[in-house]
Structures are given as structure tokens and as C-alpha cells.
Design a protein around this nucleic acid. Structure first.
Lengths: 248, 248
DNA sequence: CGCGAGATTGACAATGATCAATTAGCGTGG
DNA sequence: CCACGCTAATTGATCATTGTCAATCTCGCG
């Protein structure tokens, strides 16, 4: 079963994630792993993998490290539109569009696999379950984007930041990247501000409020959530949107 | 060429849209039109087509009328997460997920086609270009959601509302629903407020500001944009995100 | 030790929310 | 035809949240 990496291998996060989202037949998992191993790459922190307006001709699957999608207005206001966490795919199918509407930048050193469009399409054609799995991933991503819209439109600063922390924690869980009640949070407060639509100053004060209320500890790029239920309540977090996989 | 409805038929909006997004071979268009005609349905204004948490077992394609996707927090705060305009598809592939994470409600009387999952999958399997076209639609929808995140996170109230108007106008253009520099805007100010993350009162004041600055006329559910470029400038609108179709 | 990035603080300004009426438009029943 | 009742739009007054500006602080690193 090494083939689908349930117990190691560079693509472990990917397979853990698919297992939670939409389990793959061994054969499909093996084919994917094969494709991944063909295209291993690395990037340092702060590198742009894709810039808004670039044409896209491959699919990238993140094996380790964090990235974020972001868009910037003419006058410099920046909004982070999503984080991309280990095991996630940058842009399945995005090659169907002419260019990308946003940029993708690494927050940490990142290991990823690049699969060329032709190779990816061939893989999808040959492995139906794999095609469905990537489709599911796109749909889940969609659901996350919608929840971000709610977050920005209708939650207070306090709720927003709390919600983001809950979401990240729950997204890291299936890939095995939480450790007890802690997880890594390798981004600056500026990034958190840009993800929550706040100014840096206010993001900072909000984080301090969260600390003061005993809901989180955030230190040395590590987030610790003492009482996840309490944090979720504070965030008006509704669990549904991340658990959308079809039982069978 | 009646088959793909370029010049009439109930599904005209659908085919106009696909033509702009990703043109279909006649055969595929005919197959789609056939499926649409099999499943024609109507709904009155203010009806919920799908409610958050419902399982989804079909795809709905809107032939005429407006709907919106929305999510509501426990305490009643509501956020409209997108509008669904004529020619657009409610949830291609959504049946892959267990349940929907949001609700879809009609804003006006709506005519739509419902295609059952099995039928839809059969259609996709038989018509590759059709499958790609629906995929493109999902990706475009994704891009719109991201732009909404920027809108809510980084634009002022004035810019937000202006941006929403620009977007709606540009989305109605390919389906032939703009008339000179006017289009229908069949939603209440409460809906606009919920789409832009503002209070109704402030949404109202913002609309009045837009009127006072001569950028728009909004009366009797009709939006008129005197100078679209000026409105786009005021909105910090960047054109890229709606023009993502691949030239070839 | 000095530098630079990131975090933090204080003072103040501004955007947008809330509360509470009031007005306008429209369809219905008498 | 007109009063009533409803929904949507509008207004005024006030309050709260969040942004801006300008320092200062902390800490890892050469």
C-alpha cells in the first residue's frame, strides 16, 4: 500500500487528503503518485508561483508548505483570497481558462509536483475516480471561498480572525498536520490582515483580544487552540462547509 | 442552427453564454438543448430552490430570471454569496458532494431546466466539449467568487456597490440582456446590502451617492449606467476576471 | 552592536452600523 | 374611489468598529 502513500512518501499529505475527501482505488492512487514523482519541484518562501494574468499550462499539487492566492488592486490594497495548504491542488482544470485571475505566492518553503496539462488530462481520462476526486477538490474549494465571503461580509473582526483559525485548523486535520491542539501558522500578521480584510494594526489588536480571552495562544508561528468548540462558537463557525464529501 | 438556439428558443440565454465562454460543436449544443427541453420547470419569486444542507441530485440551468446563493449565520445575519443570472448553471457537478453548503433562492419568476444527475453524467461522458464547457463555467464562477472576496475585504462601500453594478452589467452582456446602457436589476436594496456586506441603510445611502455623482440611474428595477468606464474607474474594476475564456 | 522585519502601542479620524421614524408606492376590500 | 396595510425606500441622529499615522519595541542575525 506504499503506492498510495498512506504511511509515508513525499505525497503523503495528498493521499491523506483524498482519503478524507474521496477515497481513491489503489490503481488510481498509484497512477497519481507516479505522476507526482515525475514532477517534483521546490520553491523558497516568498516566491510567486503564478502571477495574475499568466497563462496556466500545468497543475500543481502541494506536498508540503503553505501558499496563498491573492489579488491586488491598482492602488496596492491586497486581499488574500485563500490559503493553499499541504495536500491541496493549485489549479486543477485551470488550464481551460486563458489566464489566471490571481497570483499564487509561497509563504514558506514549498515542495510541490507539477503535472503538465497533457499528462493531467491523460490521467483524468484513464482514471475516472481520480477525475472525480479533483472535481470534488474544486467544489470544496468553492465552498471555502463562499464561506470567506460570509466571513468578510458579515462577521466582526473578532469573529473573522477566530473563524479563519478554526478553518485552518480543520483543514490541516485530515492531512495530519495538527499536533494535539496546536498547528503551525507560518504567516505574518500582515498576511492574516490581508486574509481577513482588516488593517494590520487592527488584526494585531484582534489577535491580542483572542489571546486575552484565552481562546488561543499564538507564538513562534504556532497556533494553539485550547478549546476548539469555544473558538468555533466565538467565530459563529458552522461545520457543514468543510465536510461535504459524499459518504459513498 | 436552430438546434443550438442562436436565434431563439427557451434556452437562448444558455447558448449565448456558452458561445461567449466556450463555443460548443453543433452536436453537443443539440444534445444539451434536448436535455434542457426534457426538464423545463418554473418557480415564482422568493422560492427556495435548494436549502443549505439539502442533498443535490440534479443540475439546474437557468433560462430566465434571477436567483441568488446565500448563507445565513445562526443569529440571522445573511450574506448573498453570488447572483445566478440567466444562462448560468446552478450547480454542475455539485451532486458529487453530500449536501449543499448554501441556499439558492429566486429573486424573480424563474424558468429553468432540471437535469438529473445520471442524465447529466451521461451527457458529459458523450460530449467532451460540453463537459469542458461546464467545467469552464465552474471555473469562471470561482473567479467571480474570488473577486467578491476582494470586493468585501478591500473596497469601500462606494466602490463595492459600483463594482457589483459593473459586474452584473458585464455578466448580462453576453446573454443579450443589456439594452443600450441599461439593464434590469430586479432585487431590493436589502438584497444589494446583503451582497455587498453593508447595512440596508448604508447601502441606500451609497446608492444615493452613486446617483448624485451621476454614475448611475436606478429606478423601477432598472439600472442605467451613463459612462461605464467612469463607473469602472470608481469601482477599481479590473476587467480580467470575467474574460477568462481560452481563445481556442 | 546595528539592522531589518515583524509586532505592538497610543491618539485620533472616519467609515459604516444601529435605532427610530417617516415617506412612497401598490394592491385589496369596502 | 378611498382607506388600510404591506413592503421597500429614505432620512436624521447617534454610536461603534475599524482605519490611519506615527512611534516604539522585540528579536534574530551578520
Amino acid at each position: 500500500m506504499r503506492a498510495h502513500g498512506t504511511e509515508g512518501g513525499v505525497a503523503q499529505a495528498v493521499f491523506r487528503r483524498f482519503n478524507a475527501l474521496r477515497p481513491l482505488p489503489d490503481e488510481d492512487a498509484a497512477a497519481l503518485e507516479h505522476a507526482i514523482l515525475e514532477g517534483l519541484l521546490r520553491a523558497g518562501p516568498g516566491e510567486d508561483l503564478i502571477t495574475e494574468g499568466d497563462p496556466v499550462d500545468s497543475v500543481r499539487i502541494v506536498l508540503s508548505g503553505w501558499l496563498f492566492r491573492h489579488k491586488t488592486l491598482e492602488d496596492g490594497r491586497r486581499q488574500i483570497v485563500n490559503f493553499i495548504l499541504p495536500g491541496e491542488t493549485c489549479d486543477a482544470h485551470a488550464y481551460l481558462l486563458s489566464t489566471l485571475d490571481h497570483s499564487i505566492t509561497t509563504a514558506t518553503p514549498v515542495a510541490y509536483a507539477e503535472i503538465k496539462r497533457a499528462r493531467f488530462e491523460q490521467l483524468m481520462a484513464a482514471h475516472h475516480a481520480l477525475a472525480e476526486a479533483f472535481m470534488c477538490e474544486t467544489l470544496l474549494n468553492n465552498a471555502i471561498q463562499r464561506e470567506w465571503i460570509v466571513n468578510l461580509g458579515r462577521r466582526s473582526a473578532f469573529e473573522r480572525v477566530a473563524h479563519l483559525f478554526c478553518e485552518i485548523f480543520e483543514r490541516l486535520r485530515p492531512v495530519g498536520l495538527i499536533d494535539g491542539n496546536s498547528c503551525s501558522l507560518p504567516v505574518t500578521q500582515t498576511d492574516l490582515a490581508d486574509a481577513t480584510g482588516l488593517s494590520v494594526v487592527h488584526a494585531n489588536r484582534t489577535i491580542q483580544e483572542l489571546r486575552a480571552s484565552g481562546l488561543i495562544v499564538l507564538k513562534d508561528r504556532t497556533l494553539t487552540i485550547g478549546d476548539l468548540e469555544a473558538l468555533k462558537n466565538a467565530a459563529m463557525y458552522s461545520p457543514g462547509y468543510l465536510r461535504l464529501y459524499r459518504a459513498k
